[in-house]
Amino acid sequence: MNASSLNAQELMHLALYASENDTPDKAIDHLKQLLKIEPDNGKALYLLGALHAEIGMHDLAVEEMARALELDAQLPDTARFQLGLLHLTAGRIDDAEETWKGLEVLGTEHALHLFKTGLLHMVRDEFQESAEALRAGIERNSFSEDLNNDMRRVLRDVENAAGSESSKPADSGDSQRMLLSIYEKQEH
């Protein structure tokens, strides 16, 4: 079947399938085809951004995710969280904070709010506060075990840093791996 004969819905399903089966090149191709049909499809742009983050194209990923959030207010809150995370891992703390302001409506006890709070404490070397917020977020997160696993890795780094108090959390590559999980299936 020729990709040009597929409609947007078929292309989205193929992109998700390819992504779930570790073929990001095919997923990216399907999403680009979809965006030729529907250039303002926020979900497709978000997924494309997540895939670009996965393959290390972070600047492009930020651009695509930001545009996706502009286009589609119905994207799950995890999309905003991931965009903030991209900013944070690039050292753009002010941009991460600005992006995460949209999570304030969730309330201070929501897992995503707690995770962003914990991460912001971490970058300020406030390790005790970071660990408390991350633990609380993991406890309250019932919508994504992948996200909990990512936050547990960050929590281990924070706890190690808190134990030494003289160094920042070791970056064993886990902060980049956080961006590899696509949480788009979540409705939170």
Rank of each mutant, 00 (worst) to 15 (best):
A27H: 08
R124H: 15
P24T: 10
G56N: 10
Q33P: 00
E104D: 12
L45D: 14
L11T: 09
E129K: 05
L31F: 01
K36N: 04
E10G: 15
D29A: 09
L103G: 01
G56W: 11
N41Y: 07
K116N: 13
L45E: 02
D25C: 12
Y17M: 15
N41H: 12
E70I: 06
K36E: 13
A79V: 00
A90I: 03
E126Q: 14
R92V: 05
L85Q: 06
A53C: 07
G107N: 08
L35W: 03
G107D: 04
F115N: 00
D72M: 15
M65P: 14
A90N: 15
E70N: 12
R124N: 08
G102F: 07
H13A: 04
V62T: 14
A111V: 03
H113T: 08
L71M: 08
G102A: 02
E63K: 02
R124K: 13
A18F: 06
H110Y: 01
D40F: 11
G56Q: 04
L45S: 12
E10I: 04
A27G: 11
S130D: 13
K116F: 15
E70T: 12
D22H: 13
D29M: 13
E10A: 14
M65Y: 10
L71S: 02
D25W: 06
R92Q: 10
H121R: 03
L48F: 02
G102W: 11
Y46A: 05
D95I: 00
G56D: 14
Q74C: 15
R80F: 09
D94E: 12
L48C: 04
E20Q: 15
D29P: 00
E98W: 15
D59C: 01
Y17P: 03
K116W: 08
M12Q: 05
F81K: 00
N21A: 02
M12L: 05
L83I: 02
D77Y: 01
E70M: 14
G102C: 11
N21R: 11
K116P: 06
E10Y: 07
H13V: 12
E104I: 03
G42S: 11
H113E: 06
M12T: 15
L69A: 04
N21F: 03
N41Q: 03
Q82W: 00
